[in-house]
Amino acid sequence: MEQIVVNGLYLGAQYAVIALGLTLIFSLMNVLNFAHGQMYVLGGFITYTVVSQFHLPYIVGLVTSAVALAVIGALLERFLFRPVIARSKREESTMLLAAGVAFFLDAVTLLIFGEKQRGIPKIINGVLNWNFIIVMPYDRILIGVLAIALIAGFIVFMQFSRSGRAMRALAQDRMAAQLMGVDVDRYSMIGFALGAMLAGLAGGLLVSITGVNLGMGGPTSIKAFMMIMIGGAGVISGAIAGGFILGMMESVGLTVLASYGDITYLVIFASLMVFLAIRPQGMMGKPWG
């Protein structure tokens, strides 16, 4: 049982990083970023390239992923999402755009990095073994800790920095923030870049454990959607909670339901729909988003 909980925490920390980026973009721009999974995969591939092809330290790869994805995110916001949001009559149009971007990133990843499964060598060897109650490789612990540190850093940034305060104001009420002198365009761009960066970092973290492949983007997006639905879309604490809850459910489900075959996700999906029928806005979300 202890093992399941530790596995769940480790998975949940990673998931929470993904969900944070998605929920940030959603709360600032009201854009459901379909391309989030693809950004995550791209981040993984960039880290792989830096570490395995150029033989640089892992941390360099992680930083490269973060910077590259932040730039991509900023460019996407400036040249695609902003003009479309300004001109379209219905805000759903951005969903088409996001889906187009998802296809585009898939295509680019395929052309640049190919379709093979990629991974990097273990960062640290060895396994933590505590009386066979908890068995955990050290590199997983490191990744889990890094993910939690990232989440903590993100919260501190949002709570105490000037940009963070501006973004929180934007998420609450765009118009009011604008009237108070917040540069809406600038902080939308920063927020989108930050969200994309978190996706890239999560990909960079994952590549050291399970590797990445091209097909992971779509399913990751769906998982991220589920996390923010559990917690409530556009709420940062909700995204973190959603990530940990999904990680825990997956960890428990894979153990408990193993004898019934591969139905963990079916059970999770079904219980999510029941949950949403009772509480449509998720755990901490505003009613009707």
């Binding site: 769906i222 729909m273 029941v274 029928a277 009707w288 988003g289």
Partner: peptide, 21 residues
């Protein structure tokens, strides 16, 4: 009956999950 109470992106996400289900 239950999920049509949802709106906007919530409904969109639930229906997306429905495809996976």
């Amino acid at each position: 009956l239950p999920i049509l109470r949802l709106r906007g992106v919530y409904f969109a996400m639930v229906t997306l999950v429905l495809t996976e289900v």
